[in-house]
Write a protein that binds this DNA or RNA. Structure first.
Lengths: 151, 151
DNA sequence: GAAGATTGAGGCTTCAATCTTC
DNA sequence: GAAGATTGAAGCCTCAATCTTC
């Protein structure tokens, strides 16, 4: 009993995708969680969290869902952002007494703006190294990879 | 004094690339270094190392270069693989007494084969969710991203 | 009992300092 | 002094257990 894949993906494409994905992860430094992205003095997750919170206050659990992080990770992450004075924890926002709502402070919003600018800089450097005619290709390919990963 | 970018990349593309890249990192689980990839009981770096060593024996420093990992990380990584009996450290391979050569043991080669198969499975699931006509697009886009990251 | 949040223990990676060899 | 390798200290993330609230 075996799986028939004669009509599916050729092995050469599989090997190519593997090596290319690994190469990209390494080159872009995605295997360094505590690396300061874009030259800003914070971790990758802290940057993602602040960016996400810049869209408005959300529940701590929801932040975890969007960042794909565990409850414990989010708890400590939020604690760090709180110590830095970048976020505030509201405990009476929801009718549910268990949920903690996170919102950006004024200082936090300023950090979010700096992060956005720094990250835009890095993306700029990246896109500058890609031919104009290929940029749409890259953007669409990332869309395909994201949606394919979700399934 | 400001930078003129009228002929460069539009901001909409920058924002798009940012969010797409972040989304891909999260969806594909790239922010979890110790996650067992492809269902195999080892870390991401261990899997990468074994895969790299499957091409033949190399110096420990060279392994670090290919994996984009620090000397200390590689030292501990190699130590773990040695404890598991998957690699062997030769110390007289090179004429240089400082260099340590790493080679896969028989057990290590078997692990490499299992990893390759498991990763191929995952890539297969990923590619199956991408339309046939778009697969070349994705592969070329990854090439562009890797080379653009290197510069 | 289930869900949101927190805390303790352990793994992965980095930086800095140290040792050995060149 | 420079380069390869190792060890100590610290940050980030996960799992498991615990507490609170529903």
């Amino acid at each position: 009993m075996f799986i028939d894949r004669s009509d599916a993906v050729p092995d050469t494409d599989l090997d190519a995708l593997q090596s290319k994905l690994i190469a990209f992860v390494r080159e872009f430094g995605l295997h360094r969680p505590d690396m300061t992205p874009c030259g800003v003095e914070l971790s990758v997750s802290q940057a993602h969290a602040v960016t996400e919170l810049d869209g408005g206050p959300i529940a701590q659990s929801e932040l975890g869902n969007r960042l794909r992080l565990t409850k414990s990770t989010v708890s400590r992450l939020v604690g760090q952002l709180d110590e830095r004075g970048w976020i505030a924890r509201d405990h009476g926002e929801s009718s549910d007494g268990r949920v903690v709502t996170i919102r950006l402070t004024t200082a936090g919003s300023e950090v979010a703006a700096r992060i956005a600018e720094a990250r835009r800089e890095r993306m700029h450097r990246l896109l500058d190294n890609i031919p104009d005619t290929e940029r749409d290709t890259v953007l669409r390919a990332l869309d395909l990879l994201v949606s394919a990963s979700r399934k």
